[in-house]
Amino acid sequence: MNRSLRQQIFTGLDWTFRLLLAGLFLYAAWPKLLDPTEFAKSITNYKVVLPVVGQDYVYLTAMFLPALEAVAAVCLFLPKFKRSAALVIAFLLALFIVLIFQAVMRGLNIDCGCFGNSEVSAALATKVGWNKIMENLAFLAAAIFVYLRACPPKPRYRL
């Protein structure tokens, strides 16, 4: 495969992944931004008690996490912010994987709360489980790909 063809394939994949991730994160963020209280309920379902703060973080998280999702989704298309947006999305996906994993391990039979509680979203959202973890791992791989593509190339020195 020659270099220009490979470059074209990578560029195509980059655009596809960015569109996919941005669509997904915007769609997930919107209902949660409109109804932070409902999302706060989903967070309490995970029953994660942090050291020192306990569950005091719940509402603050319910308000800013969807905002961060939305901002990162939009920034994927701003050349100056593409790298940081991909990094944030990768971090969020890793966080979701850990949260879902602990819920599965503890046997919690809960909805993931990924898309808020709107009518259409409820149809998309699924219970936490291995399927959800695999799905998030695939999105994480896509986010890492976008991040690596956005990193500035290493300088080449020639004698």
Binding site: P36, T37, A40, K41, T44, G54, Q55, V58, Y59
Partner: peptide
Amino acid sequence: DLPFWGHWEP
């Protein structure tokens, strides 16, 4: 009007 911080549960 929910609090930013503190104990909150549904």
